[in-house]
Structures are given as C-alpha cells and as structure tokens.
C-alpha cells in the first residue's frame, strides 16, 4: 500500500496542479472571509467576538463546501483513472491485495484534501485570536472536515468501483454527495414546513423521540447540518462538546452532537464501503474479460 500511496502523492504533487488547487482553495476561502468581515464592518458589529465567530463560521463552511465536493470527485477519479488507463488489471495481478488498492486510492487523495483543510487553519486561528470561539471549536470544525473527506471520499471510491469510466464515477458520486450534503437538509426543511401547517401532527411527530432522533441521525450525513448545529450551539453559548441541548426545538431534550453522530456513522460506513469497493473491484475486473 505504501507504494500506491507514494505513487499517488507523486502524481498529485507533480507539476502545478497541487499548487494551483491549493491557491484556488485558499483564494476562495480568504476572499469570502474578507467579504464577510467587510460586510460586518459596514453593518457595524457590537463586539469582537461576533467578528471571530463570523470568520470561524465562514472559514469552516466554505472549507467544508469545497471538501464535500472535492472528496468524492478526487477519489472517484483516483480509482476510475486506473480503469480508464487500463492499468487496474496490471495492478491486480501483483501481490497487493484488493483492499490495499482501495485504501491506497482512498487515503492519498484524502491526505491531500486534509492538507488543504490544514492550510485554512490560519484563518481559523485568526478567528481564535479575535475571540468568540475556543480552540475546541477549531478542532471540531477540523474533525467534521476530516470525517467528511474520508466519508465522502469512500463514497467516491465505492462509486468508482462500480462505474465503467472515471467520468461516470465522478458524476454519480458528486450527485450522491449533493443529495447527502444539501438534499437531505433541504428535504428536512421542506418536511418541517409542510408539517408545521398541522400543529398537532407536527407536535406529535416532534415529541416522538425515535422519529426525531432518526431524523437527526439521517441529517448527520450532511456535514453542513453538523457544522450548522455546532455553530448554533456556540452562538447560543450552549456548546457542550458531545451533546446538543434541543431546548424546546424539535420536541426538546438532549441528543448527541450531530458531528459526533456523523463521526460514529462514518466509522461504521467507511470500512463497509472499503469492503464493498474491494469486492466490486474484483467483480468488475472479472467482467471486463474478453475473448
């Protein structure tokens, strides 16, 4: 696997691609942060902590947005390109095991993306210096980014193990990422809006702990939901690292922080997706046999 990791890294860091990607990523991130800061200055903020929190929220959200869509596409193309180049057969005839190929193809792009994530830390550190957030908030934002990169990256790998071309894999996994990251929260908002027209029904559903928790678990697949809930906790001054006090929202009560649920979900799903991808890779290579 070390050989595959080395090869992948060499290809990522060769030429201007890595430098360009990093530059674009940081340009978008810092540009948006500057805009937010400028916007807040115009409207006149009351204390420094507002600036810090705004910077933190913007940096975390923009980084997450980029990583959510980079991760599946980069991973899908990492494995899919082996098929496009017809090098996958050659690789699979070597003693390297299928899961090692999958792991190598998953970890290399994820490390590269995590490098991007780390590169945005100075903006978070600036927010920390200004105030309004704690070091813990930075680590949690990083944890959400890490788990998103790995989780959505494994979706990319899994998609690539099925698809016939890297382009097909990228389109399919980007679509799935879009549904999970943005589609699910939008659907939840839509359902809540519809349900709120019938208050008794809305209350009975929201007071049903099972349905509510199931909803939160499903929504935790969206990194944006996890981040927004965390930022909301920080804004409300209620942030406890592990649990979320609903305080009358969604029927009240206390549940695990969505980012914790997200980490737990992906801890189960990532090995499963790696295992399924290994199996599927073997199958699809066998099916590509000809005369």
């Amino acid at each position: 696997m070390k050989a595959i990791l080395q090869k992948e890294f060499r290809s990522y860091l060769r030429g201007n691609r890595a430098f360009t990607t990093l530059s674009i990523y940081l340009f978008i991130l810092s540009g948006l942060c500057v805009l937010i800061y400028a916007g807040q200055s115009e409207s006149g903020f009351v204390d420094r902590s507002e600036i810090g929190l705004s910077l933190y929220s913007t940096a975390a959200a923009v980084a997450l947005f980029q990583l959510t869509f980079f991760a599946p596409s980069l991973n899908a193309s990492s494995l899919g390109s082996e098929r496009d180049r017809q090098t996958i057969d050659v690789l699979m005839v070597t003693p390297v095991r299928r899961y090692q190929i999958i792991l190598g193809k998953l970890i290399a792009p994820c490390l590269f993306l995590f490098l991007l994530s780390l590169a945005s830390l100075p903006i978070g550190a600036l927010a920390l210096l200004i105030g309004g957030i704690e070091a813990r908030d930075l680590w949690i934002a990083l944890a959400i980014q890490l788990v998103t990169v790995l989780g959505y990256g494994s979706i990319g790998i899994w998609g690539a193990s099925w698809a016939k071309t890297s382009r097909g894999a990228m389109m399919a996994t980007l679509g799935l990422a879009l549904v999970l990251a943005i589609g699910l929260p939008l659907l939840a908002i839509l359902v809540l809006a519809v349900l709120s027209n019938d208050q008794p029904l809305f209350d009975s559903i929201m007071n049903n702990g099972f349905i509510r928790n199931l909803g939160v678990v499903a929504l935790s697949f969206s990194p944006f939901f996890s981040l927004i809930m965390w930022i909301q906790s920080v804004t409300d001054g209620q942030a406890t690292t592990w649990t979320l006090d609903l305080q009358g929202q969604l029927g009240g009560g206390t549940i695990l922080q969505p980012w914790v649920i997200s980490v737990l979900l992906w801890l189960v799903l990532i090995p499963f997706l790696i295992w399924r991808s290994s199996k599927q890779l073997q199958k699809s290579v066998a099916h590509s046999s000809g005369g």
Partner: peptide
Amino acid sequence: FMPDYFGVYES
C-alpha cells in the same frame, strides 16, 4: 502478465 494494451502510467 502483460495485457493486450500497454497498462502504463503515462504521467
């Protein structure tokens, strides 16, 4: 094993 295509990494 050498398949009927090159199986090389161009880059």
